[in-house]
Amino acid sequence: MNATGLVLGLAAALAIVGALLAVGLRNILHNILGFALSQVGLAGLFLTLGSDFLAVVLILVYVGAVAIAMVYAVMLSHPMDVAPVPRSRLKTAGAAVLALVVAAALWLLVRGAAFPPPSGPLEVLAGVTGHRLVSDYVLAFELISVLLVIAMIGAVMVARSFHGHRARTVGSAPAAAGAPAADPGVGAGEAAR
């Protein structure tokens, strides 16, 4: 096995181990760390296969965002000294069946596919991707941005309705002035009124 093959194997192993940790462990924070590990492994796979840009984006988007997910995980996690809730057997069995189906489908796909050798070096991949996004695929690109705008407006609406609800229940007391600002946007908004 040459050096590239070794690195490829290591990256694949990292991805698999990370994925197993992500589903197998009983602590939600460990799950998220496992997920981050598997993404690093996947990025390693892309990097060894010569797709630098994809690897970087994978780390930027998935591993970088894991920190945020961890903050939420802390809010959802059990205290360390409390025994974890046992797993539901039905859910485990269902997940196993589903995973087997997906694995079988993937295997069929991969077995049927032909892998031609690359026709040339992929030096300008990011530039080409960017160019395609605003020329050939501009409609899809714009649709995705519309989707994101909708999600943002939805988030704002959710936050605003919550804000109004709290203002009603709390009354007109200037709650945000001295309170620790868990949500600075809300705090500043209330202070401004």
């Binding site: 840009f53 970087v56 930027l60 970088g64």
Partner: peptide
Amino acid sequence: MPYGLIIIVT
């Protein structure tokens, strides 16, 4: 690396 800057920021 061609995307050195992006890798660093990441």
